[in-house]
């Protein structure tokens, strides 16, 4: 085998490999979407972040505008302090509302920003004061069950009181009841 032919084939081989890696990075991976240019970071405190993870997307009106940078626990206030990085191209008012949403019923969690009406924009290092926690499915289910249970309990109570009141009702009423009987 001639050396130049070998060189050519090896060149093709390596080029194919590099092309495949680029393909994986651009088309398959999130290398393109995670590149969001220069950013500024703001923080937000949540009582519960659910299963939000660093590098999760930050979306506004469904468009990715940034990424979650870090999540730390504030031991004084017993809160989670989430730092997010937002693309410098997008400015948000100071009274922007930060929510933690879930993509689909079981999907990953992301931070959703809803712009407020103030004129001043959030700057690097600012803190978003209005937040809403992640919806924790177990909590919701248990709340739902609890409320159901208490509802049915109160139903029973109503029935009890009703029967009690029926007991305490004058006998006349009883007779009427009896009188209501078909015979």
């Amino acid at each position: 085998m001639d050396r130049t032919t070998i060189d050519l084939w090896v060149g093709i081989f390596v080029a194919l490999g590099v092309a495949a890696l680029l393909g994986l990075a651009m088309k398959v991976g999130n290398l393109t979407s995670s590149k969001i240019g220069p950013t500024y970071s703001v923080s937000a405190a949540f009582e519960n972040v659910g299963s939000l993870k660093p590098n999760a997307p930050v979306k506004s009106a469904g468009v990715v505008v940034g990424r979650v940078d870090s999540i730390v626990f504030d031991a004084k206030k017993y809160e989670a302090l989430v730092t997010i990085k937002i693309d410098k191209r997008y400015a948000f008012p100071k009274d922007t509302f930060a929510n933690i949403y879930t993509a689909g019923l079981l999907g990953e969690q992301y931070v959703g920003l809803e712009a407020g009406g103030e004129d001043d924009a959030l700057k690097n290092g600012d803190k978003i004061s209005q937040t809403q926690d992640a919806i924790v499915l177990e909590k919701m289910i248990s709340q739902f069950l609890f409320s159901k249970a208490s509802e049915s309990k109160s139903d029973n109570k109503d029935a009890d009181t009703a029967s009690k009141s029926a007991d305490t009702k004058p006998t006349g009423a009883k007779s009427t009841e009896l009188g209501d009987a078909p015979f």
């Binding site: 990075a25 991976g29 999130n30 393109t32 979407s33």
Partner: peptide, 18 residues
């Protein structure tokens, strides 16, 4: 493609595979 891009991480998946 978009679901793929949203869930495949360059560093954690592709580089680790390499």
């Amino acid at each position: 493609w978009s679901q793929m891009q949203a869930n495949v991480d360059f560093r954690l998946d592709i580089v680790n595979g390499l």
